[in-house]
């Protein structure tokens, strides 16, 4: 279940909840669905919390070639 992408987990969770809400399951099925739902929920939250704010700049290749933008204005689009 860990390899599940966030949106897959979310979509599956939506399905599980919808099925549960239909209320046509046996008690055992409902409890199994609930357990799966809790797992998916935990997965979604874990995935959301795994992100770490960072900006990384790939430099090495560019210093070597002394890119034009290091020299000053290269007119990278409209300036704010």
């Amino acid at each position: 279940m860990d390899e599940l992408a966030f949106e897959e987990a979310l979509a599956r969770l939506e399905r599980v909840v919808a099925e549960l809400e239909q209320g046509e399951m046996t008690l055992d099925e409902a409890l199994a669905a609930f357990q799966e739902g809790v797992k998916l929920l935990r997965l979604c939250i874990t995935k959301l919390n795994k992100f770490e704010e960072q900006i990384e700049v790939l430099m090495e290749d560019y210093y070597a070639e002394a890119p034009s933008w290091l020299g000053g204005q290269d007119g990278g689009g409209r300036q704010k």
């Binding site: 992100f51 770490e52 704010e53 990384e56 790939l58 560019y62 034009s68 933008w69 290269d74 007119g75």
Partner: peptide
């Protein structure tokens, strides 16, 4: 999405 990691690969976009 404030926590989204961003990787910038700098490049001149004109010239």
């Amino acid at each position: 999405f404030p926590q989204m990691p961003i990787v910038l690969a700098p490049a001149a976009v004109q010239g």
